[in-house]
Every structure is written in C-alpha cells, then in structure tokens.
Design a protein around this nucleic acid. Sequence first.
DNA 1: AACTCGGGGCA
DNA 2: TGCCCAGAGTT
Length: 211
Amino acid sequence: MTPKEKIVLLNEVLGSRYPNPKSELNYESPFQLLIATILAAQSTDKQVNVITQELFRVAPDALTLSRMEPDEVRNLVRSINYCNNKAKNILEVSRILVNCYEGRVPETREGLESLPGVGRKTANVVLSNAFHQAVMPVDTHVHRVSNRIGLVTTEKVEQTETELMKIIPEAWVIDFHHYLLLHGRYTCKAKKPECTACPLSVVCDYAQLHS
DNA sequence: AACTCGGGGCA
DNA sequence: TGCCCAGAGTT
C-alpha cells in the first residue's frame, strides 16, 4: 500500500474515530489561537483549556493583553508548564502585535517565528488554522505516528513535514494534523502503544512487531 | 546535536 | 516516587 493510499484509508478510519478533528483549544480569533498555541507547548490540553478560558475573558485581544501588568499575566497562567517564560512571552507578543502589526497577527512564517515563544510548529498551527495556508504542523505525536504507520521514514521533524505535504491533499492537512495528534496522544502512545485497540494495526508494520 | 526550562497530574 | 507533557531557545 502506497503512502497516498494509506492517506485515503486514514481519512476514513481516523475520521470516524475522531469525528470532531477541530482543535480543542479555545479560540475565537487568530490572536487567541496564537496565544493558546504558545501556552500549549509541552503542556496538556486540559491545562491550556482551563487557563485560556479565563485569560481570554480578561484579555480577549492583543491591545488588552498588552496593557496588563506582568504579575497579573503570571498569575493567570501560573498553573501551566513553563508559566514564567510563557507569561513573559505572551505579554511581549501582544506588545509586538500592537506596536508592529496594528494589533493583528502576522500572516507570514518570518513574522510569526520572530515572536518570542513561537517556533516552526506553532507558526504552522496559526498559518494553517487561521490563515488557511497549506502547511503541516508537526509535533512529537505527528512525527511518531507518521513514522510508525509508514507515511514517512525520517528521524528529522522538518523532513516529516515536507514528506507529509507531498502525500496529504491540501484540503486535508488541518484535519490530518488533528487525526495524527489525537491518535498519538490516546492510542499510538510513545511508551505503551495500544496496537490491539488500533484500527490501523492491519496496515501498520510497527503494530505487527508490537502485538 | 545536546541541553535547559518546569510543575502539576497520574500510575 | 517516577515519569511524562499540542516545543522553543541557547550553546
């Protein structure tokens, strides 16, 4: 089975397994998506959801956030991983948006990755979800799952991104990001993958070796 | 490429 | 207790 044929199969199987592929991150604007994604790094989605709900109630836009006191921001995000760095980063990001981008989120990779706390993965999340650009966010889950089921064969995350873009139709990249992410989080786990409960095991070489 | 950051939650 | 976790930045 070729990678492109696997994509079609995954779209059916994972689509029914994860029927609501939209991000569980709570956002109503590119700004809120950007901030929520910065906060999400190396943290659980539950932590982020709790925090963003209160954070965006207090500061729904860049201008409001930029005018908050550092201690106030720190207090709002104190229960998340790397809270001190992230509090500093999102406050600085909001000030940059206000001062350099008229309060808007930049729509280019260079603009996004120049923001503190924004790397390639976060930039790709914003570019694909908010600005509908055909880029694939690749995190550890997407990277691991893609390798195990044979969509790609590379140790390098950035190469996984380019290889996935070759075989995933542009209109599917956002859904597939969530399919592969959720599958890696709940089933195709790093430590104890549940291959016996995995609907992809029949086409997965990794599952044949680990079940 | 290797290392640091960082703390709550859960087995 | 131990071990991770929707990565990013620095050396």
